[in-house]
Nucleic acid binder design. Structure first.
Length: 295
DNA sequence: CTTACGGCCTGGGTGC
DNA sequence: TGCACCCAGGCCGTAA
């Protein structure tokens, strides 16, 4: 579920509650998605939380520095498809598929729930050579248009695949890739290397606009997604392409199609987003008029 | 190096 | 009501 805007929303919620708190105890349910659960249960209790930040789709709970080499530095959580990280009253009913409990010294509890267990939980330690997070690409909200352009144009892969590749950009997922491509009027099967300057610029702007707007609306809730307080997002109401197969394009009235690109379902408008890029001759007034009138 | 594809796991929706 | 089947916001390992 969670892509950059959802993870950002969760992190902002956690930032209001976790920094300064000490983790008193750790308890796990199923642990097949947790890296070294015994090590976490042994070494995490007693740590004080310094900060919470987002790195791509990863949530990084930074812990106050301790001297000993090998001591814990951060708790790293990835929500996968169905992960939820919430701060609750420890006596609140336990949702199905809740597999991690972190007792806090303010009497609250941090819980991780994940029905499909595609998520990940692991500990970063002081001495370990990199947490693995540094291998990821640039954050789409922090990168420049020039950097964005060079990363996209260097590649032969389809633009949809590139947007989803966390080593190119970190944080984009299927929903925001489709939404960004719709806004930039680019077909998902176009090759990165084939994009014209103008298309790259529109895609860069489309990505930023979509992500900023989604963050403002606290993310998209299709099924499972909730923030740190268990609240759903609102951006799903603003989707223009994702999940709209068979519905009218808001720009031209054509029917939105769904095809498989890079193994993922991709929603796009076959009229606004063409393989050849924008046609030399823009659609005639007459044609546009006819199409746009259809409700 | 690239790209494509199956698999991981559970649940929800649909059609028979 | 039951059941088979398809689909799902992500990512990793393998194969070509």
């Amino acid at each position: 579920m969670p892509e950059l805007p959802e993870v950002e929303t969760v992190v902002r919620g956690l930032c209001e509650r976790l920094p300064g708190k000490r983790i008193l105890a750790v308890r796990f349910g199923k642990t097949d998605f947790i890296d070294d659960p015994a090590g976490i249960e042994r070494d995490l209790p007693g740590s004080r939380i310094a900060a919470v930040r987002r790195h791509g789709k990863f949530i990084v709970v930074e812990l106050e520095a301790r001297e000993a080499p090998g001591s814990v530095a951060a708790l790293i959580v990835h929500l996968g498809m169905t992960g939820q990280l919430t701060v609750t009253d420890p006596h609140a009913p336990i949702a199905l598929h809740t597999h991690a409990f972190f007792a806090l010294d303010d009497g609250r509890e941090l819980r991780y729930t994940d029905s499909r267990r595609f998520g990940k939980i692991r500990l970063a330690r002081n001495d370990s050579a990199g947490s693995g997070l540094d291998a990821l690409g640039v954050d789409p909200l922090e990168t420049t248009e020039a950097e964005f352009a060079s990363r996209i144009r260097a590649r032969q892969a389809r633009i949809k695949a590139l947007l989803l590749d966390q080593h190119v950009l970190r944080g984009m997922g299927n929903i925001y890739a489709d939404e960004s491509l719709w806004r930039a009027r680019i077909h998902p099967k176009r090759l990165g290397s084939s994009l014209k300057d103008r298309e790259i610029r529109e895609l860069y702007r489309g990505v930023q606009r979509v992500l900023h707007q989604a963050i403002r609306l606290r993310g998209s809730s299709i099924s499972d997604y909730v923030d740190a307080d268990g609240e759903r997002g609102d951006f799903q109401r603003m989707h223009k392409a994702y999940g709209r197969e068979g519905k009218r394009c808001f720009r031209c009235g054509w029917l939105i199609r769904r095809i498989i690109v890079a193994g993922r379902s991709s929603h796009f408008c076959p009229h606004c987003q063409r393989m050849g890029g924008r046609s030399v001759a823009r659609p005639s007034h007459r044609k546009r008029h006819v199409q746009a009138r259809v409700r």
